[in-house]
Simulated assay, not measured.
Amino acid sequence: MSQQQYPPQQPGSGGPQQPFGQPPFAPPPPKKPGAGKVIGLGCLGLVGLFVLIALIGAVAGGGSGSNDSKRADDTKAGGSTSKGHETADASEGSDEKAAKKTGKKVVIFKVWGTAPAGALGPLNITYGSDSDNRDGAFENGKFEATLPLDDDAMYFNVTAQLQGSGDIHCSVTVGGKTKKAHAAGDYNICMAQLSSGLLGGWH
């Protein structure tokens, strides 16, 4: 019976050599990822998704909040503006406000200042146009009146004559154009007038 031959052992090799004819040991198969790792990655993905949704919601909520605050600021600003208009309207004459509501153009006549009554009576005021002349009364240091704008009028004016002393101002306003005048002392006359131009407008 023949025996299998082994190659002689080399000195210092540290152990027996594999016999001839046998393949070396096969490497172990690669490990498959465990179920725990897959579950862990899935959980991390879900958490990340929830965080992303929360961030988007926070950004959207913040934007709408800023819009709401902006609307509130606009409302406050609008309220203060309307109050300002009410205050301005309160200082205007009732005739002027009525004219603004109806859209009709008016002429505004004003006299203000100090004008004590004299030997000839109180301050003498006249106002109107070349075709419509009226008397006015000076009360509590002022006079104000309005007339409808007559496009055919050649001029509109207001005059106020002092009765021995005083210091007054007067003005007439047509279509946003205003002419002013001043008088002081003795029997001086304050007269403001706006005339119709040949090419339209008032001067």
Rank of each mutant, 00 (worst) to 15 (best):
H169G: 01
L149E: 06
G14F: 09
E86C: 07
A160C: 05
E144V: 00
P24M: 07
G166D: 10
N188F: 05
L52G: 12
P122K: 05
G36I: 07
S195K: 00
P16E: 12
P29G: 10
G128F: 04
L198W: 15
G79S: 09
E86R: 03
Q4V: 11
L162Y: 01
Q4Y: 09
A184N: 14
T146F: 00
A184M: 15
G63F: 01
Y187T: 06
A160L: 09
A115Q: 01
D150Q: 03
L147Q: 00
Q22Y: 04
G21H: 01
A160D: 02
S2N: 15
M154E: 14
G136Y: 07
T102I: 14
S171T: 15
G21N: 05
T102C: 15
G176Q: 13
G164P: 05
H182E: 02
R134H: 04
T87P: 13
V158W: 05
A115V: 02
P19T: 15
Q161K: 05
D95K: 04
L55F: 08
A183F: 04
G121D: 02
D151C: 07
V107F: 08
D89K: 06
Q18H: 14
K97A: 03
R134Y: 04
T159V: 02
P30V: 14
G14Q: 12
Q18R: 15
N188M: 13
P27R: 03
A181Y: 02
G121A: 00
A192K: 04
G14W: 08
P29K: 13
M1K: 07
A119Q: 13
G65N: 13
E139P: 10
D130L: 07
A58P: 05
A181Q: 11
D150I: 09
K97G: 01
F109H: 03
D167P: 06
N133Q: 14
S94F: 05
T159F: 03
N157M: 09
D132V: 12
P30M: 11
